[in-house]
Design a binder for these strands. Structure first.
Lengths: 263, 263
DNA sequence: CGTTCTATTGACTCGATTCAAACTAAGTGG
DNA sequence: CCACTTAGTTTGAATCGAGTCAATAGAACG
């Protein structure tokens, strides 16, 4: 996994919310980073590489766990920088934890500061990335607070699928799900037993297929409807398509090959 | 209500999370703004002064309402800039709404950009302000997701009281509460009827007094305990005291004196 | 091939919702 | 100043979604 792969992931994500110029991509391509692997439920120990680095998620899922019961307050997909805000704020109590096996890249804060000052456009894109975090957190509260448990779980799955598509993954509404049911429980603030019953109900309704660590949404329309899913809050430029990714630019052949096999 | 008042409010708030230099305060003091009043449950119509302005809350409470049922996803106290993130992000669907009568100041985005570039320290303070929004949103999810309704309501009230104290208000744990019970319901994601029963329970336990639009927490220790309240997430520099406000600058001596007597 | 983690199932319990009605406070206009 | 209206609070009874507990079944792993 070469560092060019990391660059591609971030570029995909930024492109999903803002328009980047060729110069911006050139700047991004110079991103220094060190790759690291995590086992399921392992924490990103921010005192190691952090606090001077951010964590760019390359493969798998990360989540923030917070509060006395370790509730999940957000889930991140490849291309995200879950701790982007640590550039500004030193403190943090919640834990950044892996859902399933994970590959991350540590990128120094200084790099983000640098590209922000060199390209106002990139700076804006990064600020936007932060802003979408806010919007998603609000939506997370709304999900937990105002939907019944079926819609709650479905909404979570919708969000993950949609965000994966925005960075060129899960194009066919099929994606890896290394989650255990108690993970979903911690994310939706319901009991693990109840999650189980809901998954069964979703299967019974023929909208969801979940087998061998892979989720397939078999009827997106119906699924999104019963999830009460309305993706505007994600701030994606083109919510309907899952286009942009692969050859962002000329695309070094090795990277393209890896992208094709990844996920 | 002169514009100097607006400056003071923001300075108090920023001082609560970061150290400001005399120069920073001088910069802040030049803040241009237009004052505006809102009736209870009135929305800040961001298409009027916005999207080129931020909204600095001077008196009363604002909240963001989101989702199909208008759930409250955060509450803001004087000194807050609830829509600071709009500098980066244009879009927003949730509504910024008044809880009780409110006074706000509209401050142009350009002012914040300007002071950020003139003083890196101020820029950092503003970024921190944004970061604390994230932390509070996470905590909001945790509150809704993992506490029973009694603790949930109590925690909300704790947070409000604590944040008011951080900007020099509610020093005696007594503060205006123009909220109606259905507001608390929308914030805690429980029914209004149940909020009523909880308030009564809190009164019965002699920890809370709520009369004539004023809340008094009569036993902070007990109240914070049953709220499971742990204020670190607010990112306040000195969580224990409610010091800094009025004479922000001229008199170091006066501040010291005030520190000694406060709390 | 056992150990351990995860998924599944059933029975019971309980917190919270809903619905509806009564009551109180705060305006408003005659 | 009182009748009328409206918004908010309080109360009770019935209901239900979701939690808990506990036991079983299955999958993954060394």
């Amino acid at each position: 996994m070469q560092t060019g792969f990391a660059f591609t992931k971030l570029a995909d994500r930024l492109t999903s919310i803002a328009e980047l110029a060729a110069d911006d991509l050139d700047l991004l391509a110079r991103m220094p980073c060190t790759i690291s692997h995590l086992a399921s439920h392992e924490n990103v120990l921010r005192r190691v590489q952090a606090p001077s680095h951010c964590c760019l998620l390359l493969r798998g899922y990360l989540c923030w766990r917070d509060g006395p019961v370790g509730q999940i307050t957000s889930i991140h997909v490849p291309g995200d920088v879950p701790d982007l805000h640590t550039i500004a704020s030193p403190t943090l109590e919640p834990a950044l934890s892996a859902l399933g096996p994970v590959v991350v890249a540590f990128v120094p804060h200084s790099f983000f500061r640098e590209i922000s000052s060199l390209s106002p456009n990139l700076g804006r894109a990064l600020a936007l990335l932060n802003a979408t975090d806010l919007a998603r957190l609000r939506n997370w509260s709304v999900n937990i607070g105002s939907r019944d448990s079926l819609a709650r779980v479905a909404h979570l799955i919708c969000e993950i699928a949609f965000r994966l598509r925005a960075v060129g993954l899960a194009n066919d509404f099929r994606f890896p799900s290394p989650f255990v049911q108690s993970d979903l429980a911690a994310a939706c603030a319901i009991s693990a037993v109840h999650v189980n019953r809901i998954i069964q109900e979703l299967r019974r309704r023929n909208v969801l297929h979940w087998q061998s660590k892979t989720i397939t949404i078999t009827d997106w329309q119906a699924f999104a409807y019963l999830a009460d899913f309305e993706p505007n809050y994600l701030g994606l430029r083109d919510p309907s398509s899952a286009s942009r990714h692969q050859p962002i630019r000329p695309a070094p052949a090795a990277e393209a090959a890896e992208l094709a096999t990844s996920q």
